[in-house]
Nucleic acid binder design. Structure first.
Lengths: 174, 174
DNA sequence: CTGATTGCAAAGAATTTGCACTGCT
DNA sequence: AGCAGTGCAAATTCTTTGCAATCAG
């Protein structure tokens, strides 16, 4: 997961934009680079912060506009990650094969998973519903292996309360 | 799709809440009923409007709090429907088997689709990643059968621009 | 009774927009 | 040169919260 090839990948994105005759401003180069080198899923605020570390003049609006552009050009995917921590969106550069995201409600960890079965499912859907698929988003919420074990232990004593669980409880007024 | 059994289903939800010792206020009964009888996916605003049609005193906050409660109790699923029209969430009563949502970027139509392949995929994920799945959300964006055809026609003349496409274009400043 | 639930209105988080200015190509 | 892109700050959209009043069990 997050197998980054570094410069190679980065150039690919830049070239992709250039070949599509998209203007390459300093801001876009910077943002593209950050998105591609990212070791974790970035939200708009994190991307903005990272960009401003290099050049404080990069503006929030530019970040949102650039993300919208890249999404429209199908170069990045937008994720909700099960709204584990608020309603913000996360972004990642598109890769060869789609993958799904497993979000742990307890520790907040995000696991990635890809499978031929998913590809088969998509093909099946396309064929049977005559739908031309352009984006897929498969997000799964639950407990990761570690937290399943930890949860069993904690349940014996106090009753484990994780990230998402806390938020949900608060909202439901529990 | 949207095969509603009416009263039967409604009672089921009420009883489910009662059996869990959840207080059944007039507001909750009303909201539950609306959610279960709904013929389409409801967002918080639509749910509020529908509720207020019966009783104008139902408050926005109560709607959000009730949705949070039902989500926490795993009685409803929250959907993003590919953010086709803003960032609001949609809700639907949970059913026996999970299904995915196909969102048409052009006409905004939402199709539902369920498949044993999806069930197999979930089983595979659970087994291989040792993840305890509690919620899944599979959303697919693209063009529905009708719009694929319409798009081909329109492309010949003006170049079809649909709901989501318009918003995306606007955001990307195109 | 008594704590859970509600209404209200104000606050909050995330994102978008209008407009004047800047900078690619 | 000329239009796409940007910064800025205000506006929007959707959702949450604090607190006093109300209600279910």
């Amino acid at each position: 997961m997050h197998t980054l090839t570094g410069p190679a990948k980065r150039r690919a994105l830049l070239e992709e934009l250039a070949s599509r005759h998209v203007r390459l401003t300093a801001q876009r180069r910077l943002l593209l680079g950050i998105i591609q080198e990212a070791e974790r899923h970035l939200d708009a605020a994190a991307l903005l912060a990272a960009a401003q570390a290099h050049d404080p003049r990069v503006n929030r609006a530019t970040v949102y506009r650039t993300l919208a552009l890249l999404k429209k050009l199908a170069l990045i995917d937008e994720l909700d990650l099960m709204h584990l921590e608020g309603e913000k969106h996360f972004y990642e550069a598109k890769r060869q094969s789609d993958h799904m995201h497993l979000a742990c409600f307890r520790c907040g960890k995000i696991l990635e998973y890809s499978s031929p079965t998913f590809e088969r499912l998509k093909a099946e859907i396309a064929e049977r519903s005559h739908f031309a698929i352009s984006v897929t988003r498969l997000e799964i919420g639950g407990l990761c292996a570690d937290c399943r074990a930890a949860g069993r232990d904690a349940a014996a004593t106090k009753g484990g309360d994780g990230l998402k669980e806390q938020r949900a409880n608060a909202r439901a007024g529990l």
